[in-house]
């Protein structure tokens, strides 16, 4: 007993201050960016990318579809011209699937101002109060993932990230949920379960696609047993790219989803 209390005193608070304070992201691997001025159109990255994430039809050089990107760093390694580099940007959630194809030279700003977090927190609380009544309830559905994304969602819940402090809870049944957090490509055997879960969730509801698989099918695209992303089955409100997205990226995505309601 005394030792238990000793530990509790020793580790009073583990929770990170994120998003009130930005993460120390120096060593993170986030989204890749292309410097068009260095690119010599050799096409090496396009042919080697394991997830076929490169797009050439945007009119102004090549671009990367973040919904497909696995953040694997291969393009950075194979680009002889040194035009691609992996950045530490991990807050990538967006509402529109189109906007994920980041046009060259535009570096996205952090959409959440870091300074007045408290105000945003208040706003979110108000929104939650108005729309959902007191708190946001989330149901997680694994619709064919590799379990990487699921472990990261578990981590959102751990004492380090502790999502409950925003009034957000994970619940056991879709009937109690306001938001579905869906991972995986929507595999053939999970299609029906996903649709049933969606229908069982009362309106108004939000659907958040977590990870490359859920956003676009990721590396498992075009198989006999998978769909290319869950938006082929259910309407999606927010996409969180990454393979898997880190817990903070998921947290950011959830906050963004509520903010946009």
């Amino acid at each position: 007993m005394f030792r238990t209390i000793g530990k509790i005193i020793k580790y009073p608070r583990l929770t990170l201050k994120y998003p009130a304070k930005p993460m120390d992201s120096r060593f993170f691997i986030g989204k890749p960016e292309i410097d068009q001025s260095k690119c010599n159109n050799c096409g090496e990255c396009i042919s080697r990318c394991p997830s076929s994430a490169f797009k050439t039809d945007t009119g102004s050089g090549i671009s990367i579809d973040l919904n497909r990107c696995l953040f694997c760093s291969l393009c950075e390694d194979v680009c002889k011209a040194g035009a691609i580099c992996m950045t530490d940007k991990f807050e990538l959630a967006s509402r529109n699937i189109k906007s994920q194809t980041n046009p060259p030279f535009i570096v996205e700003d952090r959409n959440l101002p870091q300074t007045d977090f408290e105000q945003i927190g208040l706003k979110i609380k108000n929104k939650i109060n108005r729309i959902f009544g007191r708190s946001l309830q989330i149901r997680e559905v694994d619709a064919g993932s590799c379990n990487g994304c699921d472990y990261e969602i578990t981590a959102v819940n751990n004492p380090i990230n502790d999502i409950e402090r925003f009034g957000i809870h994970f619940v056991a049944s879709p009937r109690h949920a306001d938001m579905l957090l869906v991972t995986g490509t929507a595999s053939r055997n999970m299609e029906l379960a996903l649709i049933k879960t969606y229908n069982a969730t009362p309106d108004p509801k939000l659907v958040v696609a977590v990870g490359a698989c859920a956003c676009s099918g990721g590396i498992f695209r075009d198989s006999y047993a998978t769909r290319n992303g869950i938006n082929t089955i259910v309407p999606v409100d927010v996409y969180i790219p990454g393979c898997p997205p880190r817990p903070q990226a998921i947290l950011y995505g959830i906050l963004k989803a509520i903010e946009r309601l």
Binding site: R48, P50, S51, L70, C72, L74, D142, A143, G144, S145, G184, T185, S187, R188, N189, M190, A193, I219, F220, S223, Y224, A225, T226
Partner: peptide, 20 residues
């Protein structure tokens, strides 16, 4: 339930892609 056809997806792909 999460069968994705990984073995089939690997076939005829480069060793590099199969690694991922």
């Amino acid at each position: 339930y999460v069968h994705k056809g990984i073995e089939k997806l690997s076939e005829d792909e480069s060793i590099e892609k199969c690694f991922y």
